[in-house]
């Protein structure tokens, strides 16, 4: 099977714009909400969303942190390569806040599961919501579902979803790639 684009750059930008507006609908001026990007790849999306929200909210930047859940993952000592941790930067209390957790591709749900565990080490939030750019349906290993979704897709197991970012040398696109072609 061929690789194919499922979100081109125009739709990509529109999707992020729509997600931002959905967030504002639910969180207003973000006075009691915060945004947490999941390391490593969710951070590209959360950076974009926070940048855009800052403009939409008239220059007010929502509380924004980065979370690395490596130490809470369930595949430690079970993968060939050791898990290398990323940076966590949460310099505000999340106690009592409404947290929006952000990741790029939602697949088995295991990363988000470890993210939820890691997040609770910082206190007890009022609520946690999940925002993802791509939701791969019917492939969950844990009972978690997103609150905000950029695009829902049906991809089979031997396909991989790749999100490219201009920040990462790509073009703001989402691709479905057959497994063998993934380098």
């Amino acid at each position: 099977m061929q690789s194919r684009v499922i979100l081109d750059s125009t739709k990509f930008a529109l999707t992020i714009e729509r997600l931002c507006h959905q967030l504002i609908e639910n969180h207003g001026d973000f006075s009691n909400s915060c945004i947490i990007g999941l390391q490593p790849r969710g951070v590209f999306l959360s950076n974009r969303i926070v940048q855009r929200l800052e403009i939409l909210l008239g220059g007010k930047r929502p509380l924004y942190g980065l979370l690395d859940a490596t130490f809470h993952r369930d595949d430690f000592r079970r993968t060939e390569k050791p898990l290398v941790p990323g940076k966590t930067v949460i310099d505000f209390p999340i106690e009592g806040k409404r947290v929006i957790l952000i990741d790029d591709v939602f697949y088995t749900g295991r990363t988000v599961r470890s993210g939820l565990d890691a997040l609770l080490d910082f206190g007890r939030p009022a609520a946690i919501e999940l925002l993802v750019l791509v939701d791969r349906r019917y492939s969950r290993h844990v009972p978690i579902s997103p609150d905000y979704t950029g695009k829902t897709i049906d991809a089979v197991m031997y396909e991989k979803v790749r999100v490219e970012w201009t920040e990462n040398g790509g073009k703001d696109e989402v691709w479905i790639i057959p497994f063998k072609m993934v380098s």
């Binding site: 130490f71 609770l120 080490d121 910082f122 206190g123």
Partner: peptide, 9 residues
């Protein structure tokens, strides 16, 4: 430096 200084690794 977190409130809960423990991870389950």
């Amino acid at each position: 430096n977190r409130p809960i200084k423990k991870v389950p690794s």
